[in-house]
């Protein structure tokens, strides 16, 4: 993994003014992957938007970890269902144009 794609946990915590323990809790639930290199913690930059979302849920909306986990699963399901809706809409359109 390339080092330039990693962001230090300390940097994230100081920028967002959050406790490292919160990010470690997200890691324990599997919501965020934390990478350890020479005893320092990092996250991949591609995970940052997701992490910022969780920070916002927790610190701005007072949603606890269990709530964030549930929301994350439900949002994934919405995403899957949305794809299914598009697929079905296209099928309906296909069969209607067959009439």
């Amino acid at each position: 993994m390339q080092r330039e794609n990693l962001i230090g946990l300390e940097e994230i915590c100081s920028h967002h003014n959050v406790e490292p323990s919160f990010i470690h809790s997200l890691q324990k639930t599997g919501l965020i992957e934390v990478i350890v290199i020479s005893e320092a913690f990092f996250i991949e930059s591609k995970q940052l938007p997701q992490l910022e979302k969780y920070i916002d849920f927790h610190y701005s909306l007072d949603i606890n970890l269990e709530g964030i986990e549930t929301i994350s699963h439900l949002l994934q399901r919405i995403n899957t269902l949305q794809k299914e809706v598009i697929l079905l809409q296209n099928q309906v359109q296909f069969y209607q144009s067959n009439k």
Partner: peptide, 15 residues
């Protein structure tokens, strides 16, 4: 505010 923010936050209402 918190109650309504949880209800209408765009990240919680993607559709």
């Amino acid at each position: 505010y918190k109650k309504l923010a949880r209800k209408y936050h765009p990240d919680l209402n993607p559709t």
